[in-house]
Computed example of a mutant assay.
Amino acid sequence: MKSILIVITMGKEAFPRINSLLHMTQVLAQQKDTKVELLLLGPGVELLRANQKSSPIFSEAFSQLRQIGVDIAACAVSLEAFGVPVEQMLPARVVKGAVEINERIDQGVRILTF
C-alpha cells in the first residue's frame, strides 16, 4: 500500500489553489491501495477556522475527505501562532507538525508539500 502525506502551508488567501489541492487529495485517496493523510501547517491551519465566510465550503470538503478515509490533522504550534482555538476549528486531529512529518518520513511515506 502506498502512503502519502499532503502538507498544506497555504492559507485561505490561496482559495483557488487550495480547492484544487483538496480535489487532488480526494482523487489520490480514491486510488486503489493508497492511504492519504492531510496535514495543515503554518497558514494552512486557517482553513480549519469554523467562524469564517468560507467555513461551509471547507467543512464540506474536509467532511468528504474524511468519508473516504483521509486523516486530517492540524499542527498545534501553528494553531496557536495563527490564533485558531481548538474549540473554534473544524474537526481535525491536533498534532505537532514537525514530529508528524518526521514520523512519516521514517515510515517511508511520500510527502507532498504545497
Score class of each variant (00 low, 15 high):
residue 2 K to W: 07
residue 2 K to Y: 15
residue 3 S to T: 14
residue 4 I to W: 04
residue 5 L to R: 03
residue 7 V to Y: 02
residue 7 V to I: 09
residue 8 I to F: 14
residue 11 G to F: 15
residue 11 G to D: 11
residue 11 G to Y: 14
residue 12 K to W: 10
residue 13 E to S: 04
residue 15 F to Y: 10
residue 17 R to E: 12
residue 17 R to I: 04
residue 19 N to H: 14
residue 19 N to S: 15
residue 19 N to D: 10
residue 21 L to C: 05
residue 25 T to M: 07
residue 25 T to L: 13
residue 26 Q to M: 09
residue 27 V to R: 04
residue 27 V to K: 00
residue 29 A to V: 06
residue 29 A to E: 07
residue 30 Q to K: 03
residue 31 Q to W: 05
residue 31 Q to A: 00
residue 32 K to L: 00
residue 32 K to W: 06
residue 32 K to Q: 00
residue 33 D to Y: 09
residue 33 D to G: 02
residue 34 T to C: 11
residue 35 K to V: 06
residue 35 K to N: 05
residue 35 K to S: 13
residue 37 E to M: 02
residue 38 L to Y: 01
residue 38 L to T: 08
residue 42 G to E: 01
residue 43 P to H: 07
residue 44 G to N: 10
residue 45 V to E: 05
residue 45 V to D: 02
residue 48 L to S: 03
residue 52 Q to W: 10
residue 52 Q to D: 05
residue 54 S to P: 03
residue 54 S to T: 15
residue 55 S to Q: 07
residue 56 P to A: 15
residue 58 F to T: 11
residue 60 E to S: 10
residue 60 E to P: 11
residue 60 E to W: 07
residue 60 E to G: 04
residue 61 A to M: 13
residue 61 A to N: 11
residue 61 A to W: 06
residue 61 A to L: 11
residue 62 F to L: 14
residue 63 S to W: 01
residue 64 Q to F: 09
residue 64 Q to G: 11
residue 65 L to F: 09
residue 65 L to I: 07
residue 65 L to N: 13
residue 65 L to A: 06
residue 66 R to D: 09
residue 68 I to Q: 08
residue 69 G to K: 08
residue 69 G to C: 08
residue 70 V to M: 03
residue 70 V to G: 05
residue 73 A to C: 12
residue 74 A to R: 01
residue 77 V to Y: 12
residue 77 V to K: 10
residue 78 S to L: 02
residue 79 L to D: 06
residue 79 L to R: 02
residue 80 E to K: 11
residue 80 E to P: 03
residue 80 E to D: 12
residue 81 A to H: 15
residue 81 A to M: 15
residue 81 A to V: 14
residue 81 A to P: 11
residue 81 A to Q: 14
residue 81 A to K: 15
residue 82 F to I: 12
residue 84 V to F: 01
residue 85 P to Y: 00
residue 85 P to C: 06
residue 85 P to S: 04
residue 85 P to A: 09
residue 87 E to D: 00
residue 88 Q to G: 13
residue 88 Q to A: 14
residue 88 Q to F: 11
residue 89 M to K: 10
residue 89 M to Q: 03
residue 92 A to K: 08
residue 92 A to T: 07
residue 92 A to R: 09
residue 92 A to G: 00
residue 93 R to K: 11
residue 93 R to T: 09
residue 94 V to N: 12
residue 94 V to Y: 05
residue 95 V to W: 02
residue 96 K to W: 05
residue 96 K to P: 06
residue 96 K to E: 00
residue 97 G to V: 03
residue 98 A to D: 05
residue 99 V to P: 04
residue 99 V to D: 02
residue 101 I to Q: 04
residue 102 N to T: 00
residue 103 E to H: 01
residue 103 E to Q: 03
residue 103 E to T: 02
residue 105 I to K: 04
residue 106 D to C: 06
residue 106 D to T: 07
residue 109 V to K: 02
residue 110 R to H: 08
residue 114 F to R: 13
